[in-house]
Design a protein around this nucleic acid. Sequence first.
DNA 1: AGAGGTTACGGGCAGCGTAAGGATC
DNA 2: GATCCTTACGCTGCCCGTAACCTCT
Lengths: 303, 303
Amino acid sequence: MLTLKNLETFVWVVRLGGFGHAAKRLNTTQSAVSQRIALLESALGATLLERQPRQVLPTSKGRELLPYAEQMLRLQSDLLHVIGAPDAFRGHIRLGVSETIAHTCLLHLVQKMQTTYPQVVMDIEVDISTNLRDALLRGDLDMIIPAMPILEPNVRNVDFVGYPMAWVASPALELPRTGVTLKDIAHYPVITYPKSTRPYQDLRDMFLRADITDFKIYGNTSLSAIARMCSGGIGIAAMPPEVISRELNQEELYVIDVVDAILPDLRFTISYVLTPDTHLLDAIAQFALDMLAEAENSQVSKP
Amino acid sequence: MLTLKNLETFVWVVRLGGFGHAAKRLNTTQSAVSQRIALLESALGATLLERQPRQVLPTSKGRELLPYAEQMLRLQSDLLHVIGAPDAFRGHIRLGVSETIAHTCLLHLVQKMQTTYPQVVMDIEVDISTNLRDALLRGDLDMIIPAMPILEPNVRNVDFVGYPMAWVASPALELPRTGVTLKDIAHYPVITYPKSTRPYQDLRDMFLRADITDFKIYGNTSLSAIARMCSGGIGIAAMPPEVISRELNQEELYVIDVVDAILPDLRFTISYVLTPDTHLLDAIAQFALDMLAEAENSQVSKP
DNA sequence: AGAGGTTACGGGCAGCGTAAGGATC
DNA sequence: GATCCTTACGCTGCCCGTAACCTCT
């Protein structure tokens, strides 16, 4: 039978290059995907997909079909939004976020999503930005909030939020809160995001530019772990204060003003793959931005 | 659920202005149509059709939906033909023909259709042209072969075949085969197609133009009956000789050459409503024309 | 052995048709 | 009462998920 569901399945198999990936994307089993493709192929009387050991590629008939299928799906999506169907904003969204986001505005975002789009189920994954990037491009995630734009064709990046970075230390170190220089900092290990991240590299560059060579940076994937290490006096942390507002309030940690080492903001973008049907993702991205603007006005999650 | 089937049902309900008509068109029951529309409406969260006592009209949401639905169905139809799906030429075609066609090339057409498009089921109805026209416009027939073009918007008329009209008489009348005039004819009743048809009116005009006033035309909807009446010596028939080739061969009837009364050919057209999905009807119309051309070459059904 | 697609099989549910119900003329 | 859409209900068959199977690296 030629149905929209079968066509959608076909399109996702081609986009993601595999039955299993499409199954995950469509929240179903590999078996169901296999059956839908078989159904579609029998309806059209042609083999649509070349099953190769390591990849699935469309046959010439499949490539002919693709634009028709995509336009039909786009029309479906368009009409749902033009008519204003109630389930236009329904579905599973697999969202991947950096740990920084998980520690700051994620809770608020999910809470507001629940009330505004109760029909949208969110699966949330927390990982470092490069892994989020790979998962997005692999099709395992629908939308990510990494600390860097994903510079790929067909990926939309929406500038989301920037958090200022700060130097943070434990009172145990007995460092003055102002008048500290980068040279002073370098006596301690610097604890921050892992090696593959922007802040880590910014820090290293900063030390090198200041002709400081004997510095140590401890990369760590867990922000909580960083905070705990810092509290324990292991070193000075470089991280956004927003993440550790509790520790700052309880004065387990405090921010040091380092005059000659202004760290650039840690900027996050919302990224998602541009497919013909991005209405829901567009809406969620816009929703997140609106939420942020509202939060800034009412001082909820940003000073 | 938003499915192609439900959209197709919606489109036909709007086109034909009723659930029952759409059900007939789609070879299903009124109940099924009602359920599909209800399903579509719940999927879109809006009432799409205004159920009025005597007619069903789309609501504003329905009118918004219509072009999307139609384009999706057109894409479906297009892709089936581009890909060359085996069931692209499958379905029920309700064909209405004039009795003249039923007596001449219909058998041949159906035979050839069976071998070329075995997946197409044909329901055939024989009626006079005006009834065929009404049935086509009502949506009760998909394609008709009437003796006149259907001059309506959105109806395609393909010139199909013309049969010469002739004067036919029984040997019992003992009329000469040549040199007969219209005046001679007028002594007998003329038996032909019914009053509402083109030949009947042509005949009447012909008599009036010749200033003959005391003529009698017996209209009859059954060609067999006309032939039998003519054989029985009741009058002279005006009809295409092709229809009565058997009687002519057996010399139950013969053609009279009336010098001053050349009857115009009886021309038939193939007519069908232009909907977004006319691939099958286009193909059948072309098939009929091809069949005719072939028949002319091999002298099967035309001298 | 493991990854990935196919096939077999049982169960749930969607959608159909029959038939009764209701509204409007 | 006739026409036309809706609703109730039982049933068929489709489609899904589990799991075994196959194939290729």
